[in-house]
Computed example of a mutant assay.
Amino acid sequence: MSIGQTIKHRTQAFRGRVTERIGRTTRNRRLQRHGRTDRISGNLKQFGDRAKNAFKH
């Protein structure tokens, strides 16, 4: 797992959180859904990288 991938996955999760909040504030369900999928996707990618890293060592 490279540092670049880690940063990319964390920013995806953060961007998802922000988008989801904006959607919740403006009551825009499409934005909420988009943010939620980004957040979950970023978190799953981070988890996958951590699991890969755990089995490497």
Rank of each mutant, 00 (worst) to 15 (best):
R33V: 09
T11N: 11
N28H: 06
G4F: 13
L44V: 03
T26N: 11
D49W: 04
I22K: 08
R50T: 08
G35K: 02
H9E: 14
L31P: 09
F14V: 15
G4V: 06
N43S: 11
Q46P: 00
G42W: 00
I7C: 01
D38M: 13
A13T: 03
N43W: 00
R33H: 08
R24I: 06
T6V: 09
M1Q: 05
T25M: 09
N53P: 00
R21M: 12
Q12M: 15
R15F: 07
K52N: 13
F47G: 05
F47H: 04
K52V: 07
N53G: 04
R30C: 01
R24K: 14
R30N: 05
R21H: 09
G16W: 05
F47I: 11
D49R: 07
V18M: 10
D38E: 06
G4C: 09
R17K: 14
K45L: 12
R39N: 09
K56H: 08
R50A: 13
Q5C: 01
Q12K: 15
D38I: 01
H57T: 06
D38V: 00
I22P: 00
T25V: 13
K8N: 11
L44K: 10
H34L: 10
A13G: 02
K8R: 14
T11V: 13
R29K: 08
R36F: 06
A54S: 09
K56Y: 06
R30W: 01
R24N: 08
F14P: 01
T11K: 12
T19W: 01
I40A: 05
R50D: 09
S41F: 00
A54D: 06
I40E: 07
G23K: 05
I3R: 13
T19L: 14
R30G: 02
I22S: 07
G42Y: 02
G35A: 02
Q32T: 11
L44P: 00
R30T: 08
Q32K: 09
Q12W: 02
D38G: 03
D49Y: 02
T26C: 12
Q32G: 06
R10A: 15
A54G: 02
K45S: 03
R39D: 02
